[in-house]
Write a protein that binds this DNA or RNA. Structure first.
Lengths: 198, 198, 198, 198
DNA sequence: TATGAATGAGTTTTCATTCAT
DNA sequence: AATGAATGAAAACTCATTCAT
């Protein structure tokens, strides 16, 4: 019985991710979600309180994974040599791309739907984006102190790196069938490090 | 009498840009627009056919300005020296930033609202973003042939440059009161060219 | 096993009386009843057919007690002297008040919820109120024939007496912590008999 | 145009009074009201915010009329003789009955629907009923001081009078085609004054 | 017998669009 | 051209009842 409940819940969640991804939050109707999940309208409300709540649930699931990755990267721009940093940065970017690719729809919901003017989500998104920039900015500053990288302003530079990362990654994920994670990670790494040396 | 008509139309357009920008397309009600414009509900439909139509109108107004700028930059990455290219790229980026800053709300509607899953606008946005990438890709290829810049794949590189540009620009426009266009243009130019040399 | 069934049934009944009393029929949800009873949603339908049926059941439980009391009061207004009648009326009113007080929630459901426009219960309530008036009217007529009480029209007078009784009793039960049954009975008795003499 | 608006509003109000009266607040659907009013569903919400708001509007319309009547009766139980008081009480009761009869449905909504457990209206009704009792209690006390009427406790006596009045009046209005206001007023007056003398 | 997950019909409310004035 | 009242389709959410375990 508990297993049945869980199965239903997962069906709804999975359907919601698909439908939100396809139509966006605003255009998604509960009826779309339950139709895709193959359950009745009322069943939705047994498991989730509202459209907003399930959306937040989905976003925060990804949010946690994402922030955990960020946490582990404090020494991103430190290292004995520029090559050591390159290696570290590559590993980090590959991890990020892997995470975004594996959870493409959830990632896109958080970063793209969230960043749009859906109003009630502006805050959620702006927070995570600002957090992303702030962290990378901090890591950059640490690295700069060690003397291997170079830039004028940490926040600006972080914004460049992240803009490059997220905007282009989502583009590739949208238009390509599948992407070569290793190759893309290397290219990003190189482009970024070039930008950081001068 | 014709002047009155035009004035009314402009009031509606201007209100619509504001309200779309504030609440997003889906959350915007015609009643919000006409309230802000100070006209009656029915007046809206004398000037515009539908909510969708006025949104498209606003977007394409910016679209034209934007594409004109793109058209004029065919020789972006050609030049006698890397310094000449740097100068040209700087001028182009400054023009772009100036355009986006002056038409911030319209730009954001086209690039951000458009890129979200509002469904009916996906196509419009994807078109313009793809066009942007394709053009820059082409310009990069031309530049590469001349031998002053270097990269592996034009599309990937264009995507990097554009991601860096639009994502970070919108971030600054959103969080800063006002930005130093010259300084930001130089920083972008330098970061990009570093990435393109190696 | 049969004892368990009975216990469950009583839990549901008791919870239903409480919840109906607190929220009214329409606003009461089966889920409220079972939550208060501490049983599962489905269990309700093992013991009662529907929300309407359990409500009727509760009302008729009180209805029977009430009508029995009425039955035993046929000679309410007969007696050797006005003082004998006063005594008899006092005893009757005290019995009624005692019954209504002991079964306050059920009484209120039948008389107040029933009298509201809940639609499907109009009939039930109207019946019992009319029955009440008719009976008292009959008893008054018998008493009038004996010559000790006086009034113009039995139905009108019965309506006065009953209106005075039920409306004020429910008021006191609602606003007072506890009422002095004896004192209230005497006051009602006196007021009524004064009204009946002239 | 303004006239049309007002006509529509009145149609909705009038239909709402009828339908609330027929089915009670809870059972009444907006669709019932608009069907009876002959307007579209959305039209309702142009004129009233919600079902609750229109109900409160209707009730308070009657409430004002009722409280005004109460205000004008401060010297209800004062006078040179018991006959003078009888006359005054008669006039007051006749005014009340006339008001309740002319606005039967509204009165019943406020006093009966309000007194039922509709939950959100409990407060409104309890207030008006308590106010009624408090006022009459005050007027009784004033009269008692003058020495022409007699009773033990003003609140109890007020509750008796009012219970007699409202409960029986609503009964007659419900079951009789039409009532003889003068005759009923005299009977109530006499019954009450008898109860108040002893 | 008891459970509680699932059902789906029913209701309120919103809002783009129309149309008589 | 402008007005603003009216429209009605559409969508979120509730809850009495059913049914498999």
């Amino acid at each position: 019985m508990n297993e049945r409940r869980e199965r239903t819940r997962q069906q709804i969640l999975s359907a919601a991710i698909d439908v939100f991804h396809e139509n966006g939050y605003q255009k998604t109707r509960i009826s779309d979600i339950v139709a895709k999940a193959g359950v009745a309208q009322g069943t939705f409300y047994i498991h989730f309180q509202s459209k907003e709540q399930i959306f937040n649930h989905i976003c925060s699931e990804f949010r946690v994974l994402f922030l955990n990755l960020l946490d582990d990267a404090a020494d991103l721009f430190t290292g004995a040599s520029i090559e050591a940093i390159r290696e570290k940065l590559f590993v980090f970017i590959r991890k990020l791309i892997t995470l975004f690719t594996a959870n493409y729809k959830m990632a896109r919901l958080l970063f793209v739907e969230g960043s749009s003017y859906s109003g009630q989500f502006k805050g959620v998104y702006e927070n995570i984006y600002s957090e992303f920039i702030e962290r990378i900015g901090t890591y950059l500053s640490i690295g700069k102190d060690k003397g291997l990288i170079e830039f004028e302003d940490a926040e600006t530079t972080a914004t460049f790196l992240i803009g490059l990362f997220d905007s282009s990654l989502f583009y590739f994920l949208r238009v390509k069938q599948d992407i070569d994670i290793d190759k893309l990670s290397w290219r990003m790494t190189d482009f970024m490090l070039n930008g950081l040396s001068g």
